[in-house]
Design a protein around this nucleic acid. Structure first.
Lengths: 288, 288
DNA sequence: CATCTTTGTATCGCATGCAATATTGATGCG
DNA sequence: CGCATCAATATTGCATGCGATACAAAGATG
């Protein structure tokens, strides 16, 4: 409870949310401890790696990576909502690292378009405009069409089976768990990109996928069961048949459908910011 | 000449080149001064911006950006050859900034694939393998096909004229200046990407273009006049005609031709590393 | 009462210091 | 003479400190 005393000068009012209160107790990377304690506690890990941490190696650079991944996940899963401020030291305290590492992570996330980084004003979770959203979806279509083309030439039976298994997972989670369903649908596309064996392509697809998550968080309607399972199945079939044109076409339509469901029907209660902008402009007030 | 005394413990022999000697006098960002002097000298700039620096704003974050751009240019123009080591403090001294900023720049370049970043072993100019090279070209084709598609829908006359003017520049530089010719050919594609108005697409195209430069530096033959001018003209024509399929197809073929010219004929004197690898392996020696 | 200053405070930008790790060169040994 | 061991050095990884900047509330001024 002493933790509350660390940075409580501002009351953290909801309109301009920042890291504080609740977030302080959300342990994405480390349980909420003071940095110094966390740093002391880091030594004992030395040789026993593999016990506590599940999949992040503990070499040098691993902590920077950890911060990056933690923030990334937090943003994608909307623990950190779009527009939220991301002060370096608050994050550092929560994650048990110094501002340097946080800064590095924020820089990378900024490059990927997940956070905005204004000079001398700090970082905040990106709040893409509708146009940016469309741009992202366009690029995504282009990339995934390429994925489809590449895979249609040489998808193995084993790979097809793996995909089919994944789709069954999606099917299972369909009505039951909304968040899970969305995550699985996204992973399907990542899996496809992985199978191309093209590292760069994979990176780009991952990047646009994250950004799509962010975009759907802002503009997406709550109940659109994102990627229809049947569409995924059709794509697998076309890939296995080796029909590049067909697969590419299906992928294109599929993603266009996703975009349409999400973007063409901007829900009314998007956010105060977007809603107020026209009024602000008409009054000659700077809104951004 | 005192400069030589700063870091001359190593003789900087050519086989494993690092930053030193000649590079010390190559002023990409700042004339070769000691960091501390450069830092003192930074104050006087305060209000008179626009006189000395041409296009890089001098606000906060501008120096980090400067380091990034300087390194990027140096790599693309092959002042820094693939495989070359990039020690943080040497660069910092040359550019008049601290390791922190250099580190940040190297991080970004690593994300973009222009430098390799091994933990505890520092950064070096990336040395893409043939497979990575093929991956990059594949992705590039995918992206630029998308560019062609988008533009074919709505290329204005003015834009077409600008492109045509650019191609004339290319034509002029054709036989005369090899390096210039290559640079212009690359810029044509960047210009196209810009005209889509899609910022993400532009970023990606820029990224793959830089990587292509690096790749051509390693695997490209010296005298391939990269992008045939006529091919560029054909593309413009198809775009203006609004024929998406045709434009996309032309772009695809064009890039495939570039890749083929570059990659399918790996020149013999690629580098010691690649050349020695088979020997090393056949002798049971670890090569990487 | 509204607007301009002022001062305080939370940040950021960046340099630097210290510990950890790799690498080089030297020394001893087979 | 080749190879392993070890010390010296170079270089990274990361934390932290200091100055600069922007925002906010309080105060001053019309």
């Amino acid at each position: 409870m002493i933790l509350y005393a660390i940075r409580m000068h501002k009351p953290d009012f909801p309109g301009r949310a920042t890291l504080g209160s609740r977030w302080r107790f959300c342990h994405v990377l480390l349980p909420a401890e003071r940095r110094s304690e966390a740093l002391k506690a880091r030594k004992p890990d030395s040789e026993v790696t593999g016990a506590g941490a599940s999949h992040q190696a503990s070499g040098p650079g691993a902590r920077a990576q950890g911060v990056y991944r933690a923030l990334r996940r937090a943003i994608i899963e909307q623990a950190l909502r779009p527009g939220m401020k991301l002060p370096e030291d608050a994050i550092g305290e929560n994650l048990g690292v110094s501002r340097t590492l946080v800064r590095e992570a924020l820089g990378r996330l900024a490059v990927e378009g997940l956070v905005e980084l204004k000079p001398n004003r700090g970082a905040s979770v990106a709040y893409p405009t509708l146009e940016e959203a469309r741009d992202v979806f366009d690029v995504r279509r282009g990339l995934e069409r390429l994925v489809a083309e590449i895979l249609s030439a040489n998808l193995t039976k084993a790979q097809a089976a793996a995909l089919e298994a994944h789709v069954q997972l999606e099917e299972a989670a369909l009505g039951r768990n909304g968040a899970e369903s969305i995550r699985l649908a996204g992973e399907f596309h990542i899996k496809l990109a992985e199978m191309t064996g093209n590292a760069l392509l994979l990176r780009y697809v991952q990047e646009v996928s994250s950004r799509c998550s962010l975009i759907l968080a802002i503009y997406g309607r709550p109940h659109s069961s994102e990627c229809a399972v049947s569409e995924h199945r059709q794509i697998i079939k076309a890939l296995l048949a080796g029909d590049a044109a067909q697969a590419s076409q299906l992928m294109d339509h599929h993603l266009q459908a996703v975009a349409a469901r999400a973007l063409l029907a901007p829900r009314q209660e998007r956010d105060i910011r977007e809603l107020l902008t026209p009024y602000a402009l008409s009054e000659g007030l700077a809104s951004t």
